[in-house]
Simulated assay, not measured.
Amino acid sequence: MFDVVVDKDKCTGCEECVGSCPASVLELIDGKSEPVNMDECLGCETCVEVCDFEAITVTEI
């Protein structure tokens, strides 16, 4: 299982992570990325890789 955290101060709402996630873990809510389906997270860190603002961290729990 993985914990996905989005730093709201760094997130610009560009939706790159939302579109890149193969498991649909992230959604745009109130202009910021928000993890909504963390149980589906594969731990692939694609969201981390596409985020130009280093706003996302994925850790195994």
Rank of each mutant, 00 (worst) to 15 (best):
D7P: 04
K10G: 03
G13E: 09
E60W: 11
A23I: 00
G31V: 03
T59F: 04
C51S: 05
M38Y: 00
D3N: 12
V36S: 07
L42G: 00
I56Q: 05
C14R: 04
V58H: 04
E34G: 00
T46N: 12
V58P: 02
C51W: 01
E54T: 08
E54S: 15
C17K: 08
N37Y: 12
A23D: 15
A55P: 07
V5K: 15
M38L: 13
E15P: 00
V4S: 05
L42K: 10
E34M: 15
D52T: 02
I29G: 00
T46G: 12
S33V: 11
P35L: 09
L26H: 01
V48H: 07
E40T: 00
N37K: 11
P22E: 10
K10Y: 07
V4N: 03
M1A: 12
F2W: 15
V5P: 00
E54G: 14
V6D: 03
T59A: 13
P35S: 06
D3G: 00
D9W: 02
A23F: 01
E60P: 00
G43P: 08
E27S: 12
C21R: 07
A23K: 13
D30F: 10
M38G: 01
S33C: 14
V4H: 03
L42C: 00
C17V: 07
E60Y: 12
D7T: 02
C11F: 06
C47N: 04
V5G: 02
L28K: 14
C47Y: 07
D3L: 14
I61A: 13
T46F: 14
E15A: 12
F2I: 02
I29C: 09
I61N: 13
E49N: 12
C51G: 03
K32R: 12
I61R: 15
I56E: 06
K32M: 03
D3C: 04
T59K: 14
E54V: 11
T59H: 09
E15H: 07
C21A: 05
V48E: 13
K10Q: 10
C14Q: 08
G19P: 06
M1N: 10
M1C: 09
V18S: 06
T57H: 03
T59W: 01
E49G: 03
C17I: 11
T12R: 11
L28A: 05
P35T: 01
E27D: 11
C17M: 11
V6R: 06
L28S: 09
F53P: 00
L42T: 13
V50C: 06
N37L: 11
P35F: 09
E27M: 10
P35C: 12
S20R: 11
E16S: 15
P22C: 10
D7I: 02
C51Q: 04
F53G: 01
D30Y: 08
V36R: 13
T12P: 00
C21E: 01
C41D: 01
C44E: 06
D3Q: 14
K8G: 01
P35W: 07
V4P: 05
C21F: 11
K32F: 08
K32S: 07
G19C: 08
K10E: 13
D30W: 08
V25E: 07
E27F: 08
E15S: 14
D52I: 00
E27Q: 13
E16H: 13
C47I: 05
V48D: 06
K10V: 00
C44Q: 07
E15R: 13
V4R: 01
I29P: 03
